[in-house]
Nucleic acid binder design. Structure first.
Length: 754
RNA sequence: GGAUCCCUAGCUCAGUUGGUUAGAGCGACUCGUUUACACCGAGUAGGUCAGAGGUUCGACUCCUCUGGGAUCCACCA
């Protein structure tokens, strides 16, 4: 045996060996029971980071463990196209070449996007392989491949037929920089010190003698005010109700000019400001709700680029911040500004680009979620959540569900499969089904209204989560042969031909046995998979849902490029080897617990496990060299290490270590089965180093020949127990222990007690 | 404004139904290189388990409150 373990050599050699032997592939025809793990598809945005590495390494350990236990394991990998995030990444790249979406145009841009996708893909693959991930690469799925397209179309089409889809003008959270509506869950909040402006609205017919003062942080939106609301029980404003006031900023000739009506609404907070609230339905969610209930008109003073509209008079074209300043100045000049106060509040910003989010009115597609939510809530008990508290957290969110806005103004993603007759329905309104069709490809039929053929597809794409929410089903080929008629009727033959009954075969793996995620996307992704799977397949998507914590920096901040506090898993692996890096990660996998690390602390940990590799290597060296020494006397025992030499009573040390080993088998098995990988790895580590090596092996030196069968047995079982976590080293030593001709440790049977 | 989680050795963290002297790794210190291993071995120091009450024969573990930190939710203009 070599003096030192060469981890790099072993990694290359064994990964290739496993792939060549097809040891990672699932077999739907196998009589073995299924155990399925669905890899959360990383976003197509660049390199895999430490968090991904942790996720994949957790899944891999479970997959390897279950294979050894005799399951037909499916560990299915994939990648998510990640609409907004991908576009953002590509945009930055293009900017360096002085290019942009606008300059390229849709077709050229898409061409470029697909190329970029391939580059990222290649980098993902190399990382996965060097991390030793034993996924079934033959079944890898990308969220924008034809298989998923079928699923997504089916999803949309069924929603449509079930009358759960609608399009309408709604107040959405709009990111002016990304140029698209985003979900509440895609926003963050940032504490900002701003000003609260106390603005006077004089009452009509009092010659400026009476007025209402309104406190607002957004004087620039006064142009779009349509009312002032007060609380019904507020005595201060009883006499004002139903009267009209003049807003101090308005555009001459604009609808309603300067008039706003004073209304009552119990949603107004009497304690805040003056207790009077200006109502701007076009630019504030609460105002929108109040405005809708009181049948107030909608005015727009800010457009989708974050600039003031024509309604804003002199301020037209200005950015919001500038407009605010100028509006304040104007109010001052007009004597309408009573006072200003410092005001700290949290402002919604876009999670991705950190731009201030603007509530705006936009035409968007929505899915009615109530029926899906009800079904999900009734089935939450069927899923085992780790930590268990997530069941309640998710249930509460689902209970308070609101309709899901699924359209995004992007190019990267699934174009909404709706076609409008450009002649009969030029504004692409919805509700007139005669001149619109849901179809994957351009309809061949004619418009029922005009009898002609002017079909134009909806410009927007579907929210990324509309497809990733179907991940558990899409990856297995749902709906297979059960797909709906419109797919077949309205689409090209290529899709029909590809419409294999894969789903029937792959249902063996559904629901998935195990899924994992960071808590961050519990609503965006996890809750939706639960709702969608139950809705479409009538089953929960997975029976075990594991939420891991996040690794943060030493101050507890998230890793981010801008902070430069990230840790590169590739670099770690380069320096300490894959197995050691994996072990370092397992120590952070207590369910739901965040961990803190920087480059240095991660290195310390990885180094420790690198040393552990060496330790184990040396243990094996000792055992195997001893076996050479004792070759003549106990040949039999060497060939079958577990076998106790007949007629010999075991030495008390042998009994002891075998007892300890049995206890280890029990605890490791139990800990992996309950997804406590940090405990499993710790106990194996402790046993091998501090029980087996430090105590037993030392003692055995005085009676080597007699101890040899036990030494070999304990080593062999230790390797098996460790294999899910340190696959390369254990395979390497396994081959040395059992002889090069024997089969992979992956095919060995998970140890059980004597 | 609600909700959840966390505060254990200098640092990063374990501690699964409450039960004997509270653990690991790294770091520190003292010894030790006699062939498995210095990427090592033997050992030492270091914690009133955030604080205060309560339940209990017994609490790091359960309950209440206080302080500190994190996260999530919510229509605070």
């Amino acid at each position: 045996m070599d003096k030192q373990y060469d981890s790099k050599l072993a990694e290359e050699k064994w990964y290739k060996f496993w792939e060549d032997q097809q040891l990672f592939d699932a077999d739907p025809d196998s009589p073995k029971p299924a155990y399925s793990l669905l890899m959360p598809p990383p976003n197509l945005t660049g390199n895999l980071h430490l968090g991904h590495a942790m996720q994949h390494v957790i899944m891999d350990a479970l997959a390897r463990f279950k294979r050894m236990q005799g399951f037909d394991v499916l560990l299915l990998p994939g990648v998510d196209h990640a609409g907004i995030q991908f576009e953002g990444t590509l945009e930055k790249l293009l900017a360096k070449e002085n290019l942009s979406k606008g300059k390229l145009g849709r077709d050229k841009w898409l061409e470029r996007a697909w190329k970029f996708k391939d580059e990222i893909y290649a980098s993902f693959h190399s990382t996965w392989k060097v991390m030793g991930i034993s996924a079934d690469w033959s079944r890898e799925v990308f969220t924008m491949e034809p298989k998923v397209q079928r699923t997504v179309f089916e999803e949309f089409d069924r929603f449509w037929k079930e009358d759960l889809l609608y399009k309408g003008a709604y107040i959405v959270q709009w990111c002016p920089k990304c140029g698209t509506a985003i979900e509440d869950v895609e926003m963050e909040y940032e504490e900002r010190k701003e000003k609260l402006y106390y603005v006077k609205y004089t009452l009509v017919g009092t010659a400026g003698k009476e007025w209402v003062t309104v406190a607002t942080a957004r004087p620039e939106t006064i142009f779009a005010d349509v009312a002032i609301a007060v609380h019904p029980d507020d005595p201060r404003y009883k006499s004002f109700v139903v009267r009209e006031a003049r807003k101090p900023l308005y555009k001459r000739g604009a609808p309603g000019e300067d008039r706003v009506v004073i209304i009552q609404d119990s949603r107004v907070d009497r304690e805040f400001g003056t207790g009077a609230l200006k109502i701007t339905p076009g630019h504030d969610p609460l105002d929108y709700a109040i405005g809708k209930d009181h049948h107030l008109p909608l005015l727009h003073t800010i457009d989708k680029h974050g600039r003031m509209t024509e309604l804003s008079g002199d301020l037209e074209g200005l950015k919001i911040d500038q407009a605010r300043e100028q509006a304040a100045e104007k109010l001052e000049q007009l004597g309408a500004l009573e006072k200003t106060e410092d005001y700290t509040h949290s402002v919604p910003i876009c999670e991705r680009c950190k731009t201030t989010v603007e509530p705006l009115i936009s035409e968007e597609w929505f899915v009615k979620m109530t029926p899906l939510a009800e079904k999900a809530l009734a089935n939450m008990d069927k899923i085992n959540f780790l930590p268990s508290s997530y069941k309640q957290i998710l249930s509460e969110w689902i209970e308070h569900i609101h309709d899901w806005s699924i359209s995004r103004s992007l190019w990267w993603g699934y174009r909404i499969p709706v076609w409008y007759c450009d002649k009969c329905n030029p504004h692409h309104l919805v509700g007139k089904t005669r001149d619109m069709i849901v179809s994957l490809e351009k309809p061949t039929k004619t418009c029922q209204t005009c009898g002609e053929h002017h079909w134009i597809q909806d410009e927007q794409v579907l929210d990324t989560w509309f497809s990733s929410g179907m991940w558990p089903l899409a990856t297995l080929g749902w709906p297979g042969s059960q797909s709906s008629e419109s797919l077949i009727a309205d689409s090209e033959a290529s899709l029909k031909a590809d419409n294999s009954p894969e789903w029937n075969k792959m249902q063996k793996y559904f629901p998935w046995s195990f899924e994992l995620s960071s808590g961050e996307i519990k609503y965006l992704w996890i809750a939706r998979m639960i709702m969608l799977s139950l809705h479409f397949a009538d089953q929960i998507p997975f029976s075990n849902m594991f939420f891991h914590g996040q690794i943060r920096d030493l101050q507890g901040r998230k890793f981010s490029k801008s902070l430069g506090n990230g840790i590169d898993p590739n670099q770690m692996r380069e320096e300490w080897g894959t197995d050691a890096s994996r072990m370092a990660l397992y120590s952070y996998t207590a369910p739901g617990r965040d961990g803190r690390a920087n480059k240095q602390t991660m290195d310390e940990r990885a180094k420790n496990f690198r040393n552990f590799s060496t330790k184990l290597w040396n243990i094996a060296k000792f055992v195997l060299e001893s076996s050479v020494l004792s070759h003549q006397s106990s040949d039999q025992a060497r060939l079958e290490p577990g076998r106790i030499v007949q007629g010999d009573a075991l030495h008390e040390d042998d009994w002891w270590i075998r007892e300890e080993l049995d206890k280890l088998i029990t605890s490791v098995t139990k800990n992996i089965e309950s997804y406590q990988l940090h405990l499993a790895t710790e106990s194996i580590y402790d046993f091998i180093w501090h029980t087996f090596a430090d105590i037993y092996l030392e003692k055995s030196k005085t009676r080597r020949v007699e101890a040899q069968p036990t030494l070999e047995h304990v080593l062999k079982v230790s390797l098996q127990l460790l294999h899910p976590f340190m696959p390369f080293l254990t395979e390497e030593l396994w081959s040395k222990l059992t002889g090069e001709k024997t089969e992979s440790i992956m095919l060995s049977r998970w140890p059980s007690r004597r």
